[in-house]
């Protein structure tokens, strides 16, 4: 077995042994099941069902839980080992920095993925049984996974930079707050106050991984994005539903790659 896989295994097992991680997964599972069971009307009108409202619940659940669930173990992964001296000892073994970093990234990602699959699989099964198109659930799951990976990569990057676990986690939560709510609120306030150009709203919606996630999911739900008002409709007219989803996916992928790369380089430079 390769050394990277050894680190992946070790990190994965470590994450899964953490009690809070299991608790978080359980809450996520319960929340998803509750929403899928009670969060949407069962009424089919002339064969029509709408899922926008039910989906809003799932999207919000995902935005509240997924990033934090990914952030905590990732932020701890390097900083904690550095604090305890374990990192120095591990790096003193015949391994490369890349192997250690990849192991951390892979291990935490797998743990988070497992937890997502458990929660979303169960909630998705209920939702699909209750008439939600499976494709919609699958797309939501795909975007949730991407979102989770974004925050794993960010967390690990902070973990590399920050002096301690506590600081990495604190920084992670701050960034989460900005990405998830404060940033967008700021953009909204700025728009109301100074009338930002529309392009800036669109740019923010694609650049912020949390909003990109929302754009992607909504484009799967509502092909012409009329849910997102006139600007949303213009986005749909310009890129199409598939284009919007692809752009969102690319933005999320960039948010995985960039912090991943930055973290790795910093890790290599400073240990």
């Amino acid at each position: 077995m390769s050394r990277t896989m050894l680190f992946v295994q070790r990190e994965l097992a470590g994450s899964l042994r953490a009690r809070w991680f299991l608790a978080y997964s359980a809450v996520f599972l319960a929340g998803g099941l509750l929403l899928a069971t009670f969060g949407m009307g069962d009424i089919t009108v002339y064969g029509f069902r709408g899922f926008a409202k039910a989906f809003t619940g799932l999207v919000h659940l995902a935005l509240l839980f997924v990033p934090l669930m990914a952030l905590f173990p990732a932020a701890a992964a390097i900083a904690e080992d550095r604090e305890s001296g374990a990192l120095e000892y591990v790096l003193a073994q015949p391994v490369t920095f890349g192997e250690v970093y990849a192991g951390k990234l892979g291990g935490v990602s797998l743990a988070v993925l497992l937890s997502m699959t458990l929660g979303f699989g169960a909630a998705g099964a209920v939702a699909v049984l209750r008439g939600v198109p499976p494709g919609l659930v699958a797309i939501l799951y795909a975007f949730v996974v991407l979102l989770a990976l974004v925050f794993v990569a960010l967390g690990l990057c902070f973990s590399t930079i920050a002096g301690s676990r506590a600081r990495a986690v604190t920084f992670g939560i701050l960034v989460w707050l900005v990405l998830v709510a404060l940033g967008t609120l700021g953009v909204m306030v700025a728009f109301v106050r100074w009338g930002l150009p529309e392009q800036l709203l669109v740019t923010w919606s694609f650049l912020n991984p949390v909003e990109a996630f929302r754009m992607g999911v909504v484009s799967a739900l509502d092909a012409d994005l009329s849910l997102l008002g006139p600007v949303g409709a213009r986005v749909a007219a310009r890129f199409g539903a598939a284009g919007t989803a692809t752009l969102s996916g690319l933005s999320l992928a960039a948010w995985v790659a960039l912090p991943g790369l930055i973290g790795w380089r910093l890790f290599r430079a400073h240990g």
Partner: peptide
């Protein structure tokens, strides 16, 4: 209120459930 199962796709649901169970069992 029509019962959802009539409109749902049990096969896909089974797929999602299986994914969840595999995840749970592997923990």
């Amino acid at each position: 209120t029509e019962v959802g199962a009539r409109h749902g796709s049990p096969l896909a649901a089974a797929g999602f459930l299986a994914a969840a169970l595999v995840a749970a069992a592997s923990v």
